[in-house]
Amino acid sequence: MKVMVMVKASKGSEAGELPSQELLTAMGAFNERLVEAGIMQEGEGLKPSNEGCRVHFRGSEREVSRGPFVETNELVAGYWIWQVDSLQEAIEWVKKCPNPMDEDSDIEIRPLYEMEDFDEIDSDGKVREQEEALRQNMAMQQAQANCYLYFSGDCDAALAYYQQHLGARLGMLLRFNESPDPVPEGMLPEGFDEKVMHCEFTIGNMTIFASDGCADDGPFAGFSLTLTIDSEDELRRVFAALADGGSVGMALDKTFWSPLYGQVTDKFGVIWSLMLPEQTNPA
């Protein structure tokens, strides 16, 4: 079940008082525990209500009122979205939370509605279909796409050239002989051990992935597109859609660089690499 865990506002938070360094450090450590446990999906702090507003609905009329709002006990200063097995589990985690204020404070836990709660109303399933389409759309809007270049043994030379002439900025670089997982025997031609297995560089505001590939068959072998998707369910859906009529080069699986990674060539001949970011916990 999903729950929203709300940190209620206090006089201090409404006055715009920022937390102490000690409290920030303690809350950061608590959030790390939540992420490591696979519970935390989202979390943010909110500015005081004097920087916000409310919209009151009365029939077709809309009335906007500006903060601050006086009902401090009804205001929220921050929130998390957690995926837990039960309300009791959420309660136990909240008990472990540092006091989020430098004064007495309250944290409220509220379960989120799931589509199953509306089965009786949504008898034909149309609302569920609409919600699923919206969920997929939102997940893909947040996906990150990168071009992946394969230089067939000339990656180092290409990087040096782009750094000299295009102001390329090199990020991480991993060679085959530095791989945490051993490279399968016979995968690489002789002398390829020190070639680039994977690297990332930036030109302007574009981040590009690159590799020497696994063979020396010319100055430039081609490219693929990499999609980084935060949702495992959405990643699996997209991978299956691209594989329909295409071919799977590497089935989705855990790797040392991603909790879930795979390669697929779609029916139009475009090669795709799909991956979950490292901080994502597969279901």
Rank of each mutant, 00 (worst) to 15 (best):
M187T: 15
D124I: 06
V3G: 08
E51I: 06
R110L: 06
N99I: 06
N205M: 07
G45L: 03
Q21C: 04
E129N: 11
Q164N: 10
P277T: 11
K126I: 07
V94K: 09
Q142M: 07
T207P: 05
C97Q: 01
P184S: 11
S258P: 00
G269Q: 10
D102Y: 05
W82E: 00
V76K: 04
R236I: 12
E114Y: 12
V183Q: 01
Q141F: 05
M4R: 09
A241S: 11
T228C: 06
Q279G: 06
G52D: 09
A241C: 07
T255S: 03
E178C: 13
G45E: 01
G43M: 02
G249S: 01
K267Q: 04
G171Q: 09
D106G: 04
N137H: 14
D216P: 10
R54I: 12
A168C: 13
D266S: 02
E232H: 02
N281G: 01
M197A: 04
G12C: 01
V183P: 05
I121K: 05
W82Y: 09
A90M: 03
V238R: 08
M250H: 12
E89L: 06
D119K: 14
E36L: 11
C53I: 15
F256A: 08
L170F: 13
F192R: 07
P98I: 02
L274P: 03
V3D: 09
I121H: 08
V270H: 07
S211F: 02
Y161C: 06
G269P: 10
A9R: 00
E103T: 09
K254F: 05
G78P: 01
G59A: 12
I208V: 12
K2C: 12
M115T: 14
V55Q: 13
S273T: 09
C147D: 13
S179M: 15
G67D: 00
K2A: 13
R236S: 05
L235G: 00
M206F: 08
V270Q: 09
D106S: 13
S105V: 01
E63I: 15
G245L: 03
G78L: 04
A251Y: 02
M206A: 10
E32Y: 07
A26E: 11
M140Q: 08
N73F: 11
P48C: 00
V55C: 11
